[in-house]
Computed example of a mutant assay.
Amino acid sequence: MVIRVNDELITEEVDGMGMHPFDLLVPANLLAAAGRVVIGRCSCGSAGCGSTEAEVSRVDGVVHWDWSGDAPMEHGVSFDAAQYDVEVERLGNDQGWERTVDIGEVDIAGLELSWAGVDYRDPRKLLVALHADEEQFHIFLRFPIDADPDDVRRTLRQPPRSWQATYHSLVVGRRGRPSMAGWRWRSEDAWG
């Protein structure tokens, strides 16, 4: 989800990408209540690598966000509560972002499906994010946005070395590739 404050794109200012709308809006709209809300995450797709968090508070007709985690600006921001409530309700009612992708279970040794959704870098692509727990990598496969789930499943049943994939290490500063990487795999940092 892209969040702008006074035309400044704050969800990508520090960490690389906004949260998926599902994470902010389901089962409850987290932006509507007081408390800490993660609004930005690392470009690898995980809020655990780095995150931008807003501490949402409401006083005397004003909603205020104070930053914790990786702050996108040096100061918090304030909103007129009535206007804020209208926008938050609009977000909660807009379900245009929903795209159900049932690719089933991923049965590949050492990999777990993290999520599948629209690629924030290219909305014409479906991004399938896998987690290699033991090696501490995220692995990404991209398909056309209207890909048939059966085609996605067929690709996932192929040996990982045959995939055209990108990867991102979850260990800061580590170089190297996942052991299952094929010759067409590229570091996510090199993806363009």
Rank of each mutant, 00 (worst) to 15 (best):
S68P: 06
A129P: 08
P160A: 01
S51Y: 03
L24A: 00
T155Y: 00
A54R: 11
G176Y: 11
A109Q: 09
G16V: 05
S78M: 10
I103Y: 08
A129C: 15
W191P: 00
R124P: 00
W97D: 08
G104D: 09
Q158F: 02
L141E: 09
R184M: 13
V101M: 13
I108S: 07
A190E: 10
T155A: 04
M19W: 06
H64P: 00
R157D: 13
V152M: 05
D15G: 09
A54Q: 12
P72T: 05
L24W: 03
V63C: 01
R153E: 07
M73G: 10
E89S: 15
W65A: 02
A181Q: 00
L111N: 01
E98F: 11
C49Q: 13
R186H: 04
S51D: 13
D66E: 14
S43W: 11
V14L: 06
C44Y: 08
W163V: 10
G18K: 07
S187V: 02
R153Q: 14
G50T: 05
I10N: 09
V62D: 00
A190V: 07
D7Q: 14
D94G: 06
E55G: 06
T155M: 04
R142W: 02
E55V: 14
G48H: 11
R157Y: 03
D151Y: 07
W183P: 15
S57C: 03
G50K: 13
R41N: 06
G40M: 04
L113Q: 00
E55F: 08
P144H: 03
R154P: 01
Q136D: 14
Y167K: 04
C49K: 09
L9M: 15
V152T: 06
L126H: 11
A109K: 04
W67A: 12
L127M: 11
S114K: 07
V101T: 07
I108P: 04
P159R: 07
W185E: 01
V5W: 15
V106G: 01
D15W: 05
L24M: 00
A116H: 12
R161G: 08
D60H: 01
K125V: 01
L156A: 03
S187E: 11
R184L: 14
E8A: 15
I145H: 06
G182F: 07
A109N: 02
G96W: 08
F79S: 05
Q164S: 12
A147V: 13
V88H: 13
Y167D: 04
R58A: 03
P21R: 03
R184K: 14
R154I: 01
L31E: 12
E135H: 12
G76H: 05
A28K: 12
V63M: 02
D85N: 11
Q158M: 12
S114I: 05
D7M: 10
V106H: 02
V56Q: 03
K125T: 06
E188T: 00
R161A: 15
